[in-house]
Design a protein around this nucleic acid. Structure first.
Lengths: 239, 239
DNA sequence: GCTGTCAGTGACTGGCGGGTCAACTATGGT
DNA sequence: ACCATAGTTGACCCGCCAGTCACTGACAGC
């Protein structure tokens, strides 16, 4: 049994590959550069991966799988009776959001690549699949909340989902660009407040920042600079 | 003066190029395929464009310039006194949104490419520039509205902008995927309602779907199927 | 009809980079 | 020491495609 293979080789290659993909996108990342960055040769790369795309797929699939794991857990937990209580329900969702966005932060390089689409059009389906799967979980999860009068009854479900998804989606896109980790919990709490104001029933709304806002705790920032208006739609429309 | 050039050649090439770019992305679109689709030869392509990227830049730049035109017009129009009246102000914004989304619909092929990032990472800056420019216009435009008490004073401006931009951004992404043109005005009106509920002051809120919803006109759809909940973030998936 | 010009052509070139493999090297067993 | 085995290397091969250019032929003017 002569010569042992470097047990870290594959990990080093995956790390290097992620960095190169994030920097240049799938198409323009070069296998030579990936192996060089890992301190190995081109040949070594092909000992561990069938092709450049194979490495990419492994990266993306494992990341999305781990992300999906958080989502898949929801239906089970939701059978719980906490959902009879709106306040506790909101806390549950907040905790879920926090878990998910924490993961996004930790994997911000790859997530940025996926969200910004540097993975060439042929890989959109991976993201789409994940999205569809998530949507399905959400639909069944939330049916409960709907029955419990959590939401306004005059909503257009397509638009409301665009509305909610858009807000969190955009925050995710913003997050992966940051250099320093922000106060995730505070941000998600505020986001939840705005979303609930937008689509929640009056009953649910009562559980959100009960009355006046500026009491003490988590600094409701008053910012005259860059106020907000009903446009900015579009593209990277904001920072 | 021998031989006239086909006056439609460049237009045919641009059209074909747009289609190929939309289908395959910048990197994988082939100049041969573009010219073939235009019914011309590869050589003809290079009579009109310095390179493949040149054609791409021309397409993107002209489209973004036309889009920016709508946005740039806002500050001038906003000097108007309609902005003293909240209801008229909302109608103004709605009209603007409609104009912009109408344009997006008409150019959905290219917009899809830009939003989904099939243009290789090196062209993000074009979109980013546009976004930054838009942001600037919005900031100065809305400063007015803030002074007039249009918005809640406990907003975190970064998050509120993510919230608003996200909603419209997501709707744009959804729109460019559709095969059939939806009722844009109805959709944007509902979106505005949700957004205003999320960030508007109580005063502004009073101008939105005054009281109960289901009166007559624009069908407030009640949809038990796929209800909506505070999740779906993320990529197409939303929280 | 003849000629000069120039839009348009498409075979060809060059190089880039994904993927291969014969040679090389480190290691453990005898 | 020497061999057998398996990990590692990087020069090489080759397909692909952006970009070139000598050539073709349509057309205007005479």
């Amino acid at each position: 049994m002569p010569r042992q293979s470097d047990p870290h080789a594959k990990i080093k290659l995956l790390t290097a590959a992620e960095e190169e993909f994030v920097e240049h996108g799938l198409d323009r990342a070069k296998v030579e550069d990936i192996s060089a960055r890992a301190g190995l040769s081109k040949g070594a790369f092909y000992l561990h991966f069938a092709s450049k795309e194979d490495a990419f797929k492994q990266l993306v699939e494992t990341t999305l799988a781990r992300l999906a794991h958080f989502v898949d857990a929801i239906p089970r937990e939701e059978a719980n009776e906490v959902f009879e209580d709106m306040a506790r329900s909101m806390e549950f969702w907040l905790a879920k959001d926090l878990e998910i966005f924490e993961f996004i932060w930790q994997n911000r390089g790859l997530m940025r690549l996926l969200l910004e689409g540097g993975s060439s059009l042929r890989y959109r389906h991976l993201m789409d699949e994940f999205a569809e799967r998530t949507r399905h979980v959400i639909v069944q999860s939330i049916a409960l909340g709907a029955g419990r009068g959590f939401y306004r009854d005059d909503l257009d479900s397509d638009l409301a989902s665009a509305f909610i998804a858009g807000a969190y989606d955009r925050y995710a896109r913003q997050l992966v660009q940051l250099a320093k980790k922000p106060d995730l919990e505070g941000a998600l709490r505020k986001m939840q407040t705005m979303v609930v104001r937008g689509v929640g029933s009056d009953a649910l709304l009562a559980h959100v920042r009960p009355r006046a806002a500026a009491v003490s705790g988590d600094s409701p920032v008053i910012v005259p600079a860059q106020p907000v208006g009903p446009t900015r739609a579009l593209a990277g429309g904001d920072r």
